[in-house]
Structures are given as structure tokens and as C-alpha cells.
Design a protein around this nucleic acid. Structure first.
Lengths: 329, 329
DNA sequence: TAGCAATTGTCTCACGTTGTCATATCGCGA
DNA sequence: TCGCGATATGACAACGTGAGACAATTGCTA
């Protein structure tokens, strides 16, 4: 790749004038500017980032540590949102897939330090508490929050998600929902249980006994579920549920099958609603799954915006999700 | 962040000696080395990549252009494979989500030029032909190949995938498979059709009339399918199929539902096999989907390896997939 | 013609690192 | 004591860019 010196030679002008053109100094004659710009376009010159970083002492690099995220399709939108903002703001986002506590994490840290990253976004695969110490570089936590409130965090508003969805459920006339929740060591499960109970209570219903923990473990890409044990008894008695609310779309998919085996067709005999809006599952299920979309894309955008602009004080941003209607409800 | 000069000052030694320690030059006294290393550890110093790039005229950066890939969960493994190799080899991979022909692509090119990327991996969302002109930077094509054979390419061996899967099918005793193929403008569809026909022929069966095009369009994350029109007539007559081979797992999921509506239970009345091994769908389907895994992770690794090592001549690497057995067959 | 503004050029420095070359120190044999 | 090689350390330049200080040149106006 050529340098400004080379361009100056070809334009029969000085290094300084080329520098002026590139840095939009107005003190350049229109003709000269055009001539130089033509040469730049012709040879496809781009100023060396390395040299610019050196000179300006600014890296324009934002690190994105994806803790297991990139293996989980549900949260690619976190990455997309962040990257879109980085692009709009002329920053370079460096993505690392890491596992906390392993060599991959240490390596990512070294690399980001070596590049003098201006901020680091740490993204978790699901809404959880983490313990990230303070370092020289400002951190923004994405889909997680710090144990000791040391860093700004962006999380989904799980209470609102459940609250709003529950309102929709009762407004549509469903009377006996059951909530197959995530395991209780997941932050979202408590928030959603509260939202579920509160929204029902506000409409005069008590659903506090209609919550079940349906996830056994989250290891690997596919959660182990307890739906097979939970559902049949629920549909054995008299007052059977008219809606199954699932903690995540993958569980809902499983529930479709379980209900089918009980002779119940979703959309006709029983309604199903869920959380995530995870393509392509939600569209491929028949009928399509009505679900609360987690605002991953916007969370990614918010995280990158805060990472670039910096923050005066530590804050926790809770982003709302929206109801995506299909035909399972 | 401090510099080597700062370290030299604190260690009461020269800049060069610090540099020697950092670059593992053996010509340093053990005591001096220990003293300097202690200071480095204490202040958490990392050499500036920007300065190293300048000095060495090597960026150690490999670009990864993901054309729609990162939105498609199926091909995250391409990215993971590439990144793992980059990490092992001490290179920095820069990922860009682009759409060919848009500003995002132009932007990615500028950025990679600015960073003086040593090679660029261009990854497509599905196996296809592309038209990538020669530039100064060597390209490796991933999941696609160049129209005019100008760049090394890594693609899945779709012929082998279909051939091997078809062999398994007949070895298990299935006699009347139908193949619901992808649309014919997708490269894989032809290769797989050939593999399907050839493998069957080698075992004495003629399946050339058992292939149907089941994908209407691939726009968006969820393909539009024609399975609803194709399947019922097939199961109306006497000699009904005993196995449905699907062009992709998402189609297989749809087929599970369609077959269910025809009163057929997969794994009991009818077998299903497919291509992709796309989690979490394959595991969540009941019974689990037996499918040919596309070698995305290995393809990503191969692409990065070739990108780093360079190549003497343009080649096309076809990587084999493997059969993942579950219970749909 | 002097004066002024606009334009271009020269020169210098700094950013952090590392290769080249030169220097300093030491032990040891002549 | 001198010289030698081996070991250890240091001085300096250069990578490409951008900025400041300031001079030189041109064209135009008063």
C-alpha cells in the first residue's frame, strides 16, 4: 500500500498539501484538491490506521467480548446491533468469542489492551449477574449486570416483558394460564414470575400457583426440559389450563410436541405463548408462535452507543420488548 | 497505557533492553530480564499493536466478510472455526457483517485497507457462485466460489453429503425415498441431486424421478416452502414413500408438521433425514432429526489457515460432512 | 505599486517499537 | 599488561501520519 508521500510525488505537490486534502483542511485550492483526490481514488489509497493510532493516540477500537454468545443463535442480534452503531460512528469493533475464566478470555484482554481499545462491551448469553473488576478500560455490560454495580449495564426488562404478555393473555380472554418458567438460578425467571403474577393480580386473577420450573439444565445449545413430567398431570384433571406460557421459544417448541402427544392441537385446543422470538423456530412452528421479542438488537445498539460516548455515572438500562403476534394465541 | 520508555526509566535501563526482553532476545542478563519482567507484570504493560504494525509493516489482521452470515444461525460455525485458528496463530480477525453491493461492503473494504489486512475471507450464507474481482489483498472464499476461478475457495462437498446419506438410507432398508430438494438456483441442489441419484444407482435403485423442488424462495430468515403442495399427493396413492429426505433442517421441521397432518408420525410411520445439523432444531424435534452435518466449523478453520499461510495456486477445497444419527431414521 | 488574502511548500517534531550498528564490560590466555 | 572473544547494553533511525511554525508564491484590490 502506498503512502501520502507517494501521492504527493504523483500529484507533483507536497506531502503537506496531500495531508491537508485528506484531513479536509479548507485551505486548499479546489483544483489541487480534485487532482489529489483523483489520485487517491485511482490507487485506492486509505490512510494507515496504525499510523493514525500512533499519531492521534486514539484507537477507535471498541472490544466486544461475547461470552458464549456467538454459539447461541438467539443473541446474534446483540452483536449486530453493536456493530451497526460502531459502523455509523466510524469505530472499529473487535469481536472475541470467549469463555469466562479460560485462556480465551485472557487472550482477548491482551489483544484489546494491545490495540488500546477505548471501551469494552461484555455480553453474556443470558440475563445474569457477573463479577467484572474495574480495569483501566471502561466496560459496558450487555445482557448482564455487575455484582457490585461497578459498570453500566444493558439488560432486557424481563418484568415488563412478562407483565405486558400476561396482560395480552387475559385481555384475549384466557383464564387459566400456566407458566413453565426457566430455572430459578436465572435472573429472568424471578423477574418474569413477578411480572406474570402482578399483571394477573392487576386484572383480578391469582396465578401465583400456576408457575412451574421447567428447565433442568442449560448446558449445551439445547436445554434439558422437564415439560414431559409437568404437562400431563396438568391436563389430567377437570380445570385444565387454556394456555401454556413458556420461558423460551425452544421450550415452546418442545411443548408443541408434548401437547400433541396429549392429543391437544395448539391454536385450537390450547394456546401457547413464549419469550424470545427466535427465528426460524417461531415461524416454522405450526401455528406460528406468538412470543415476546427480547430487544437484543436495540440492546446491542445501546451498549455500543454508551461504550463510545462514555458515561458520567454507572447506570442500568432496562429495554422493553414487544409482543410478536402469530397464531398460537 | 505506558510505553517501553517508561519501563526503561523505571528499570533504570535502556529502551532497547526492554525491547529485547519483550521480544525474547536471549542476549539479556537473567537479572535484568527478571527486573524488567516484574515491572511489566506490575503495570500490566502490553506492546502497542499500532506501533508494531508501523514498525514491522505487518498488520497481522485478517478480514472476515460475512455476507449475511451472522444473521443466519446455521453458519456461525464458519466464524467460530476461522476465529479459533486466528487465535491459535496469533492473528487478529476482524469481522464485518456485510451485504454485497451495499455501503456496508464498501465500508468493510475501506476499514480493512486502512488496517492493511493481510488477507480477506469472504463468507457466503449458502453455497453459491460469486464474482469477486482481484485486488491487492489475497482472498479466500468460504461457502462460495469465484465465477472465474480467481480465488481459492472452501465449500462443502455437497455431492458427497448426499451420496453418503443416500447410502445410509438404503443400507437401513428404506426403498422408496423422496428428496425434497432446495431450489435449483442453489448450487448445492444439483450436486446433491447427483449424489442422491448416483448413490442409489450404485446400489441398484433408480431414484431420478423421486426429486422435487420444495423451496419457493429463500428471502428472509425463513424459507418459503412448497411442502404443503408436494407431500399430500405423494401419500395419496398405493406405493407411498417410506422416507422423506429434506434439503435442510428447517424444511425438515416443516415436514414433521405436514406429515403429522397427514396422520403420519415420524420415526414410526415414516422416516425423515436432512442436511445441516442445525441446533437447536435438530435436537428439539421429536424424534430427533438424523441429518448430514455441514462441515462449517472445519471450513472456517481451513479458510483461516489458507488465509494466513497463503497459497501458491488457486484451489477449491471440498470438505466432507458427517452423518449425525438421531431417531428420525 | 504596495498591501493583502489565498494557496502551497519546507521543515520539524511526535507517536511506540524494533532492527542495525556501535559500545561497554568481563574473563581469560598470551 | 594487552588483546581477544563473548556477553551485555545502548544510541539511533525509520515506519506513516498529522500538526505547528513559518516562508514563498500567486492573484487581486486599493
Amino acid at each position: 500500500m502506498s503512502t501520502q508521500r507517494e501521492i504527493a510525488r504523483r500529484a507533483k505537490t507536497s506531502l503537506k498539501t496531500v495531508s491537508r486534502v485528506i484531513n479536509r483542511d479548507p485551505l486548499v485550492n479546489a483544483e489541487t484538491r480534485a487532482r489529489i483526490e483523483a489520485i487517491i481514488a485511482e490507487i485506492g489509497y486509505e490512510p494507515s490506521q496504525a499510523a493514525r493510532m500512533m499519531r492521534s493516540q486514539r484507537s477507535n477500537v471498541i472490544g466486544f467480548l461475547a461470552d458464549g454468545v456467538a454459539t447461541s443463535s438467539s443473541s446474534i442480534d446483540l452483536i449486530r446491533g453493536a456493530q451497526d452503531v460502531a459502523w455509523e460512528r466510524g469505530k472499529q469493533m473487535m469481536l472475541f468469542n470467549i469463555e469466562r475464566g479460560t485462556a480465551s478470555a485472557a487472550n482477548a484482554d491482551s489483544q484489546l489492551t494491545a490495540f488500546r481499545a477505548e471501551a469494552i462491551i461484555y455480553a453474556a448469553v443470558f440475563h445474569q449477574e457477573v463479577d467484572i473488576p474495574n480495569t483501566g478500560v471502561p466496560h459496558v455490560l450487555l445482557n448482564c449486570f455487575d455484582k457490585r454495580h461497578r459498570h453500566t449495564a444493558i439488560v432486557p426488562d424481563d418484568y415488563q416483558l412478562a407483565y405486558d404478555l400476561t396482560r395480552v393473555i387475559f385481555e384475549r380472554g384466557y383464564k387459566r394460564p400456566v407458566f413453565l418458567n426457566l430455572n430459578s438460578d436465572i435472573v429472568a425467571s424471578h423477574l418474569r414470575a413477578d411480572g406474570f403474577v402482578d399483571a394477573a393480580a392487576a386484572l383480578g386473577h391469582d396465578v401465583s400457583n400456576a408457575i412451574y420450573t421447567a428447565v433442568i439444565s442449560r448446558a449445551g445449545t439445547t436445554p434439558r426440559l422437564a415439560t414431559h413430567d409437568i404437562l400431563p398431570p396438568l391436563f389430567a384433571g377437570e380445570e385444565t389450563p387454556d394456555l401454556v406460557l413458556c420461558g423460551q421459544d425452544t421450550m415452546a417448541m418442545n411443548v408443541y410436541f408434548e401437547l400433541g402427544e396429549l392429543g391437544l392441537k395448539v391454536g385450537r385446543d390450547i394456546a401457547v405463548a413464549s419469550f424470545d422470538n427466535l427465528e426460524p423456530i417461531v415461524s416454522l412452528l405450526k401455528p406460528g408462535l406468538s412470543t415476546m421479542e427480547l430487544p437484543y438488537y436495540d440492546m446491542g445498539r445501546a451498549a455500543m452507543t454508551l461504550a463510545i460516548d462514555g458515561q458520567d455515572e454507572v447506570q442500568v438500562l432496562r429495554l422493553k420488548g414487544k409482543f410478536i403476534e402469530r397464531h398460537s394465541l
